[in-house]
Design a protein around this nucleic acid. Structure first.
Lengths: 251, 251
DNA sequence: CGACACTTTGAAGACGATCAACGCCGGTGG
DNA sequence: CCACCGGCGTTGATCGTCTTCAAAGTGTCG
């Protein structure tokens, strides 16, 4: 993938598949390129929803302050991903999260109604949206399941492996693309816990020194991401790390 | 709402709004009524996906066995809700969860392709689906956030309040519609923890004796469901129960 | 060099899971 | 009719994990 997604490259996103070149051109003409400096916000929790975004470059942190006054990062989005589509179709009027540039960020910004109109006009576009949102929904369900059932070691291992795959890094050695503080917040754990957990992972084939990560042995990372994680098919992370293979049934 | 949803009542579901009566009739003709006895499965994890379901009566438990050999209930669906739409549009070929009748259950069953074809043919139907799936996605995100940040007392309180609203019960006194074992599994906690938590909730205005629940004071339950829970707008549950109102920021 | 953001490490405490025992209830069968 | 059993839920004691508070280390940038 190129450094920054140009409008031409945007056309190759799954979101636009099944449309003619001409249709794509017309659709993309409604969008405007916009830059955000590191730390700038795209929008805040409570702001009225105005735009749908496609990230062309950089990293956007989505987070929410919960009633206790703490922040929970709900997602970290990168190049090629989108922002706001579920909020737009769920017909809530205001944003439910804060969106802040964790990097310098480039997005293409489309009016909210454009998204709905385009879905109405082009059934292919609507089906692409259904597919993308369904995927998001399933990932969120799996996330909830993980949070409810996995230890911090399992959460961290799973996250690191997914980062590696998503960014197409070499498992044998890569740099963490986000700060540890951000990752801890994303995983819903304290920075201290995250830091301690990283040391423990060394016993399980994941070595982290500073920002450098190496995933060892185990014959290919794909086998290590949870089957339910939807990134890869087969997985052993959960068993490998700390499961005692209880046979107890909950129901 | 009537005891069991008839095909005529199904037409009033949000899913079919914006369609003409004639279109609804044609669409619904593709469906077949089907009964499941308590304990029967609609499908199992790994089964090929064949149908889209609308629940006309009863309760369906969706759950998954995770690698450690334990079961986690991912959702409990009731009359008027649907099953399988995200799996169908996410283009996975096999079911990702088990679906079992927790009651005697009546569903209307539609071929998988019917759902995709209908979305392609009727843009109103596609938009209804987008809206429903987006709502699911947001609820799942909130669920994940809750699992990551809330204590078991908060989780239980939030769940009970949502049950009360969803089933349109009288907050001053109602019976739990599910077994405690099922609820505990749904909340990702052990039955013992759930049981102990119920006692603690008495101090916070929620009294549970056996299956009988009463939600006291607090001027209307709606104010008690988390703002992010999307069932109601304003909420204080999180603060009310155990938050120390830390000002610490994660990021 | 010093300020500051980010991270690590230590020690104490809170919370939930686990193991174990028991109470309750409905059904079955002698 | 009573005894037994299984499913379900409660209660107690213990243990491991994660959070919390505190302090110190590392790095960058002016």
């Amino acid at each position: 993938m190129p450094k920054t997604l140009s409008p031409d490259i945007l056309k190759t996103l799954p979101l636009f598949s099944g449309l003619t070149e001409q249709e794509k051109d017309i659709l993309l003409k409604a969008g405007h390129i916009r830059h955000f400096m590191k730390g700038e916000h795209l929008f805040l929790h409570g702001d009225p929803i105005r735009y749908f975004y496609i990230i062309c470059n950089g990293t956007v942190q989505l987070f929410r302050e919960n009633p206790g006054g703490r922040e929970k990062t709900t997602d970290v989005r990168i190049k090629g991903q989108t922002i706001s589509k579920t909020e737009i179709f769920d017909a809530v009027r205001v944003h439910q999260v804060n969106a802040i540039a964790a990097d310098d960020v480039v997005v293409m910004e489309f009016p909210m109604v454009w998204l709905k109109e385009s879905a109405k006009k082009h059934s292919a576009f609507a089906l692409n949206l259904l597919s993308a949102i369904s995927r998001n929904a399933r990932e969120a369900e799996i996330e909830a399941e993980h949070q409810a059932t996995m230890s911090s070691a399992q959460l961290v291992a799973c996250f690191i492996q997914r980062v590696c795959i998503l960014h197409d890094f070499n498992p044998c050695g890569f740099e963490l693309p986000y700060s540890k503080t951000l990752i801890a917040s994303r995983l819903g754990m304290e920075l201290e816990t995250f830091s301690r957990t990283l040391s423990k992972l060394k016993e399980h084939g994941i070595t982290v020194n500073g920002t450098h990560v190496a995933i060892h042995d185990l014959g290919g990372i794909d086998r290590y991401v949870c089957a339910n994680c939807s990134v890869a098919e087969d997985c052993q992370t959960h068993q490998v790390i700390g499961e005692k293979a209880t046979t107890r049934r909950n129901v």
